[in-house]
Design a protein around this nucleic acid. Structure first.
Lengths: 354, 354
DNA sequence: GCCGAAGTGGAAACCGATTTCCGGAAAAGG
DNA sequence: CCTTTTCCGGAAATCGGTTTCCACTTCGGC
């Protein structure tokens, strides 16, 4: 009598098939190298089907020292950018039969480290860092320590945004994308440009800033720079700050779409019209930009592609078949919509903002 | 010599403390009923601290037949409503030392069932259904079967939206909220009202529809009804359909904010002004509504409270201390913003839409 | 002084798989 | 016919904890 109440175990399958536990395990595990006779395999398969046998995930995980799950760390689950990445990751993972832990760090390094410790403890097969890292020695050391621990038990670590050079990475071309955005407004004829940046210590933010600056400097433009925090509220605050600064500006390059949405709202509230008075260009191309007004010109980051590539990369590492190239950069492109246009030539030639 | 390369196990702690494995386990497990001498407990605690011992999650899970994790099933991770619920759930879970599986069903019943099977297999401690269920006998039977299986191994199942009556549930007052929205436009003086509903087979959508209708019927108003799918695109399409229908309408009650955002965009595109020509009222009060124009009047659903309550409820069930009340309804409230106003009395008295 | 109860500790079973090591049978080779 | 592979199967160890069951000591009560 096999299963008494509880779900069937492998031993029940073996018993029904008239073979040993060992043979049953090997027959059901396709990647076992041990030879198995066709008849035994057939009997085991049939018995497993008859009992609707499903292997116990935890027993397997205990023995193989690895959980068949992946984890993704994000700065903010509610941020559309991360939501898209999560969607792609969990879809790819699910295809491989893996469940996905989503860890919301709330942009707090301590929380991130706490999650890392938990993930390491539960021997998660792969950890994907969806957001960029901080430029902070102590923080980086702590993260590296955990990453090393994860690698030590055979887990994979993949960065989907600028992180440690030593990790496998699938990242967007932040520098190039920022350059595209800057070139766009320069080509439109803007000469007085503002930059709304992300958190100073965030590497993604730095890369984008460098991209903007490289093009603007080449064009002889010294941008007005205000700091933001990659949230909509931060964008609105930055726009307000820009207006109070009184600097004349005809174009605003915003380091992500979230903040650009805040910028647009703040400008509208103050009667500044976009793109007539000021052009606004975002970054990321998060879903839903066609529903805001005016539709936002931005740089498209292939979020879904990056997420899927991250999972594929992690699996490659787990199989030990990772390519030699550690960092793969995903191309980005400019998406022109309604929020950018040539500057209006007013009588005084002065910009609209200020 | 305790740990040779690999992380310290409980046996190492026991050895260092000079006690048996059994005593070490009991000393470190606060909820063990077995009496332990103060000196032994002290020695074990010290040894554990010295070795930086962390229990192996999988071994513990295997023996206790339960993973210290919870799972949340959502229709769409990128939907701001679900993102907020996920945020609250994972925050509460993390406080309890639990990791959170996020399962994105993409609104596909088959995907939901696949995830349920996986979760059940990995013996997840709790499963929270963030989205409402479908009115479909076969689907409900399948889901109930899985829920029973989860309960069978001691797992908790909690609904955060209308689902099976037999489950513990923490849900928003959908009927009452819809009634609030309808009362609001009726009180403003609207008599020609349209309803943009969610998917027909979704129970959440049905409850809201019933709430709208109860108030409108009492006021002698027969609404124009169009179907939607709870997405922004669906809202835009519904607004377009409404305009093509040519029915004169001065207020539109939209069954969620996502669709309301689509409705606002479509109306603006067609030159219909809100709230001058038409009032629009949403549902949910997702974050970010202050950044769209005009700011949306809506019904606030306490997403974070529902998520946290769901986790608390699940833990109560796991502890066996669940209250007798199966269904708890969370109150909602109307949030008046700029998208609703009294109808304009035009010369012909005809509505703006149509 | 004897007996039962309470307090404390440990040996061993157990959770459910994977994996190592070995043995026997059959096939190949001399 | 005897040896050496090759092929196939199984017993048992292992992963790292929790839990059951039992043994021993001490103490109180009679």
């Amino acid at each position: 009598m096999p299963a008494a109440g509880r779900p069937p175990a492998l031993v029940d399958v073996a018993r029904l098939a008239g073979v040993s536990l060992t043979t049953a395990s090997r027959a059901l595990n396709p990647d076992s190298t041990h030879p198995i006779s066709a008849s035994a395999r057939q009997r085991v398969t049939a018995a497993a089907a008859q009992l609707a046998y499903q292997p116990n995930t935890m027993a397997r995980a205990l023995r193989t020292r690895r959980m068949p799950t992946i984890a993704v760390l994000v700065h903010d689950v509610a941020d559309p950018y991360f939501a898209e990445v999560i969607r792609a990751i969990s879809a790819s993972a699910s295809e491989e039969g893996l469940l996905t832990f989503v860890c919301n760090t709330e942009r707090d390094p301590a929380t991130e480290l706490r999650y890392l410790a938990m993930l390491r403890l539960s021997r998660v097969a792969a950890v994907l860092f969806a957001g960029g890292g901080l430029e902070d020695a102590a923080y980086r050391r702590a993260v590296d320590e955990h990453a090393a621990g994860i690698a030590a038990y055979g887990g994979a670590v993949v960065a989907l945004a600028p992180r440690s050079q030593r990790w496998a990475a699938e990242v967007a071309d932040n520098h190039g994308g920022a350059a595209l955005a800057a070139e766009h407004v320069v080509r439109l004829g803007h000469r007085r440009v503002a930059l709304v940046m992300g958190p100073e210590r965030l590497r993604t933010s730095r890369e984008r800033e460098a991209g903007y600056r490289s093009v603007l400097e080449a064009a002889g433009i010294e941008p007005v720079v205000v700091a933001g925090d990659y949230t909509r509220e931060g964008g609105a605050a930055a726009a307000a700050e820009l207006l109070e600064l009184g600097r004349e500006v005809t174009a605003v390059l915003v380091s992500n779409d979230n903040m650009a949405i805040g910028v647009l709202a703040a400008l509208r509230e103050r009667g500044v019209s976009v793109p007539a008075d000021v052009s606004v260009v975002g970054f990321d191309d998060v879903p839903g930009l066609e529903f805001i007004h005016p539709a936002l010109t931005t740089v498209r980051v292939p979020m879904a592609a990056i997420g899927s590539a991250g999972v594929a990369r992690a699996l490659a590492i787990l199989r030990g078949s990772d390519r030699n190239r550690r960092l793969r950069v995903h191309p980005v492109e400019l998406v022109e919509r309604a929020s950018s246009a040539p500057p209006l030539r007013t009588a005084t030639g002065s910009g609209a903002l200020g």
